[in-house]
Design a protein around this nucleic acid. Structure first.
Lengths: 149, 149
DNA sequence: AATAAACGACAATTCTATTGTCATTTATTG
DNA sequence: CAATAAATGACAATAGAATTGTCGTTTATT
């Protein structure tokens, strides 16, 4: 074990970071709730749509496993989003029963609108982190994400 | 408005960062849920305890306002944590009716144990971000936190 | 002093999420 | 190939988080 690992300061800094992540996440959710209020979609459902837009069609069990949540709640949300017309099932070549969940035409349109709304918000905000810092931040967060299995 | 602000790449990077925050937060919650399973406390209640430990005694309305959640839900959680013996009310010099919510002796003990458990977990993980990167990450997150009012 | 706002308590409701069960389908393995 | 185990979608029951609304009292404002 690296000596710096057991350094008390570093451990405390880790708590500070964890706290920053938590409170920033919560504000982020609050802000996006307001930005996308008109969509009548909850944060988990919006996240689902954005994730499928980013990562492509996936099965319900996979969507659930990646998020460490029960497949039942994902199934429910997928069902409701499908009923609302934002998601559609695609034939899964690898599995006859468990189909791939993909964005419908409406879903793609909605995601596009959401992204545009968020971009407009960031522009109005009039601030962006320095490119280098943003990248560093992402790297740190993503590494933590991968370490936490 | 700064020209870089409207740079498409930067905006897209901002989405990437937002996504990193979201998914890392969720894993963090999942991990800490496991680490502190024995406490029988939910994530919101643990956060409340840790925040009061860090920031000192506060009134319920203030705790709620900072988090952008209703004072009613904070009141409920504070009441339950008080009943469980982790919180205690302190006389508020500035307000006769709305007392300050502080950690009890038991609460302080619990927070100490939680911090130790988390430190032990980080040590077992065998990884910490570089000090400089960690600071950068915190700065970026904290600035976003402050900008999002 | 009168009025407005804040506070704690309580209730109703919605949404998220978990757990558990069941029938069916898919995968494994002997 | 046949038997068994695991996975999947549907459904139900339940718990917890959080919002909204109301009420009576206390605190602040004007």
């Amino acid at each position: 074990m690296d000596v710096r690992m057991s350094d008390r300061n570093s451990l405390q800094e880790m708590h500070v970071l964890a706290n920053s992540i938590r409170r920033t996440y919560n504000r982020l959710r609050h802000t996006t709730d307001q930005i996308h209020k008109q969509t009548e979609l909850s944060a988990p459902k919006r996240t689902l749509l954005l994730d499928i837009a980013r990562e492509g069609p996936q099965t319900v069990p996979v969507l659930a496993a990646v998020r460490y949540v029960s497949r039942q709640i994902v199934q429910t949300q997928v069902n409701e989003l499908t009923k609302a017309g934002y998601l559609a099932t695609k034939v899964n070549p690898g599995h006859k029963r468990s189909s791939l969940i993909a964005l419908s035409a409406n879903g793609k349109r909605l995601v596009k609108q959401m992204v545009e709304r968020e971009n407009a918000f960031v522009q109005e905000l009039g601030w962006l982190p320095k490119d280098k810092d943003l990248k560093t931040c992402c790297e740190v967060l993503d590494t933590i994400y991968e370490k936490l299995v």
